[in-house]
């Protein structure tokens, strides 16, 4: 159930603005890797390129051996990529359960079976008490959890999480970390996560990639990057990320 992800030379400009420039990295199958960097570094753009929201100007995206550059988002979902949105996108007019049901219907054609699958996902994320509320009425942390539940319901082999811990209390962060580690252990799912909450990064990631102004600044174990002078200089030093001290 796991898949490796390799991006090579990814470049994306928005009307002259350099969002991402020649970024390459590999997320080995079954590993948990974090993508960090200051706001505007190009992290979300990197996710959008991997998930097929728009094609890169140059560069390739590979899932294991397969070149998936330029595929549509739905095709990438079929290929095994599940992603969450930093700016959450709930189906506001549907219930929380129905939100996840839509994801579950991707691989399960029968509605009744998909509904059960969706209920499992809600339980996993601790959202079951809210199952029948409208998704639009959830608090932001719950909407972040819903994003994860929806993505997981599609049964991805690689999960892209964009700042899902933002706004969670430390205990909730720990619960989410435990859930993700549990998933990774039990299903072997590969996880690439964008995260500002260093507490979560340190607990989860075996490897950290640091982006700054569209370029890859550093790469290594959490210990290595947090001691890297360039990283401290541009990121950790002055602009202390949320929860870093916690």
């Amino acid at each position: 159930m796991s898949l490796s992800l390799t991006v090579t030379g990814l470049t994306k400009h928005f009307r002259g603005l350099r969002a991402l420039e020649d970024v390459s990295f590999t997320v080995p199958a079954g590993k948990i890797v974090a993508l960090i960097g200051p706001n505007g570094a190009g992290k979300t753009t990197c996710f959008n390129l991997i998930a097929g929201v728009f094609p890169p100007d140059t560069g390739r995206v590979h899932l294991a051996k397969r070149d998936v550059t330029g595929l549509r988002p739905d095709q990438l979902c079929t290929a095994g990529v599940g992603r969450t949105f930093q700016i959450v996108k709930p189906f506001a007019g549907l219930s929380v359960l129905e939100n996840v049901l839509v994801g579950a219907l991707h691989r399960e054609r029968r509605v009744a079976a998909a509904r059960e699958k969706a209920a499992e996902m809600l339980a996993l994320l601790g959202l079951d008490p809210q199952a029948h509320r409208l998704a639009g009425s959830l608090t932001l942390p719950d909407r972040k959890r819903l994003e994860v539940a929806k993505a997981l319901a599609t049964q991805p082999k690689i999960l892209l999480l964009d700042e899902v811990m933002a706004g969670l209390r430390p205990t909730e962060t720990d619960a989410m970390v435990a859930t993700l580690i549990g998933l990774n252990r039990s299903t072997g799912i590969t996880i690439l996560l964008i995260e500002h909450v260093m507490r979560a990064v340190m607990a989860l990631a075996e490897q950290v990639i640091v982006l700054d102004q569209g370029r890859k600044l550093a790469e290594g174990t959490p210990e290595q990057v947090t001691q890297d002078p360039r990283v401290i200089e541009t990121y950790l030093g002055h602009d202390l990320p949320e929860g870093a001290g916690a």
């Binding site: 979902c77 949105f85 007019g93 549907l94 839509v102 991707h106 929806k150 599609t154």
Partner: peptide, 17 residues
Amino acid sequence: YFWLALRENPDAAAALG
């Protein structure tokens, strides 16, 4: 359900395959 998802948010619908 796919229609409803499309109506509510096309980007999120596409991401769910």
